[in-house]
């Protein structure tokens, strides 16, 4: 019974998401797109934190870096092909993921947390202090990429409804991809590393290699979200790679429930809606967010998916 209710519940939500642009105000559609993009980012972090046990405080580096790649690549006079630009952003971010991952994965536990934060901040200072990409002000994206399949179909990314559907499709694809990874032989090894890395090593797995591949995949998925975010706002700035973005994403992972594919969906939506509410109450809304984070981390360490309703029937 619960399983049916559950399916019905998620089915209805998906239907509502499909129909949202028909009754939503422009602002809400934009906000929904923002949430969808964040879901992609938080899901990529969940792959590390929830499924592999790697607590990264520097994941925003990939989110922001990808946006910067787009900004630096965009030509002044003409629009770039969307898919070429996306691929370029993902690949460049993947290379950064290999470099960062190769370094930080040499450490464990608290050192991993510290070194991911430090490397992420290194990128922040680099973007903030050099003139390479607009310094502390960031830079505008000259032209939104052009989504067209030859000549028969075209999306207008400046149109909020078009962009919303693009974000929705992307989020769904990413969730499906992550689900596939988790249920693959590779995902099985990740689960082993997450639960007991020592034994996994002793069973003949080169865990460093597996963690590195996972880290790079996560960085590339984060690149997708950073790319979309840059397209949505038409601007990138150093704050995108800052550790507060990573910290918030970590909070969304926990709030939803780490190690559950739908966890980031629930966690991201909840926190972003709640924060929106806080912002209406006071200009010191971060205070309320802080209190909420402390309370959730102390009392709901298993997140919202810990509630029976969201669980698969046992």
């Amino acid at each position: 019974m619960r399983a049916i209710l559950r399916k019905l519940f998620f089915g209805l939500i998906f239907l509502a998401l499909l129909l949202l642009p028909f009754w939503g105000d422009r602002f809400y559609i934009q906000f929904a797109s923002k949430i969808l993009i964040m879901i992609v980012f938080v899901s990529s972090l969940n792959l590390l934190v929830g499924f592999t046990g790697l607590v990264s405080l520097g994941h925003a580096a990939f989110f922001g870096f990808s946006g910067y790649v787009l900004a630096l690549l965009s030509p002044v006079d003409s629009a770039m092909n969307f898919f070429v630009a996306l691929l370029a952003s993902i690949l460049c971010t993947g290379v950064l993921g290999v470099i960062f991952g190769a370094l930080v994965l040499r450490t464990k536990g608290i050192f991993f947390i510290m070194s991911t934060l430090a490397l992420g901040e290194m990128l922040f200072y680099f973007l903030h202090d050099t003139d390479l990409a607009g310094g502390s002000d960031g830079m505008y994206i000259n032209s939104r990429p052009d989504v067209s399949f030859f000549d028969w179909w075209q999306l207008d990314l400046a149109n909020v409804v078009h962009f919303y559907y693009l974000a929705l499709i992307t989020a769904v694809i990413v969730l499906i991809v992550i689900r596939a990874i988790i249920h693959s032989p590779f995902g099985r090894v990740l689960a082993g590393i997450c639960v007991n890395e020592h034994r996994t090593k002793a069973l003949g797995y080169n865990t460093y290699k597996f963690k590195l591949v996972c880290f790079v995949i996560a960085s590339m998925i984060a690149a997708v979200s950073g790319f979309l975010s840059a397209v949505q706002f038409g601007v990138v700035n150093p704050e995108m790679v800052g550790w507060h973005v990573s910290g918030h994403a970590l909070m969304m992972v926990i709030l939803g429930g780490k190690g559950a594919i739908l966890g980031p969906v629930i966690g991201t939506t909840t926190l972003m809606l709640v924060e929106e509410g806080f912002q209406m109450v006071t200009k010191h809304w971060q205070l309320l967010t802080g209190v909420a984070i402390v309370l959730v981390a102390l009392f709901f360490p298993h997140g919202l998916v810990g509630f029976k309703f969201f669980k698969k029937g046992s």
């Binding site: 032989p185 099985r188 639960v195 797995y205």
Partner: peptide, 29 residues
Amino acid sequence: IYPSLSVLENCNIAVQSRLDMSMQFMRSV
């Protein structure tokens, strides 16, 4: 061992280590 996994899944991880497919991340187990 892997306390949070089932007995079968515990063994699966061990058995899979002998097969050359652990890097396969897009196909289902």
